[in-house]
Amino acid sequence: MSSEATAPAESGGVQDFILERQVGVLERAIETLRTCPDDELVAQTHRLSGTLGTYQLTEASRAVRDLYDAVRAEGTDPSDTPRDGAIAVLVRSLDEIRESTGGTSHP
């Protein structure tokens, strides 16, 4: 069981929808963090943190929120802020979910 899968359940179909979509949400978030230009990093991490958390991906949301705080800190150049740490957390979450649901591991 993934550590990301322990959040309180929503009702019926909503919980099913969330679990069904978690992999896709994480994949899109990883792709965004890898490819988004530095000048969009604040906006994207701000958005992704909320989306990941709402999809009950708590650790991933927190990692992206930490990256947002780091990028937003006064005087920080986004190009100096390593994204690798947050991306690693998201990849780990993705692998855990895939393992728990019998899917393939992230490359």
């Binding site: 009702s11 019926g12 179909g13 909503v14 979509r21 896709g24 899109r28 989306t51 709402t54 999809y55």
Partner: peptide, 16 residues
């Protein structure tokens, strides 16, 4: 503008 959130909110409201 976030497709994932818009869909989720739609599903939740629809179910209710």
């Amino acid at each position: 503008d976030d497709d994932d959130l818009r869909e989720l909110v739609g599903v939740a409201l629809n179910e209710s």
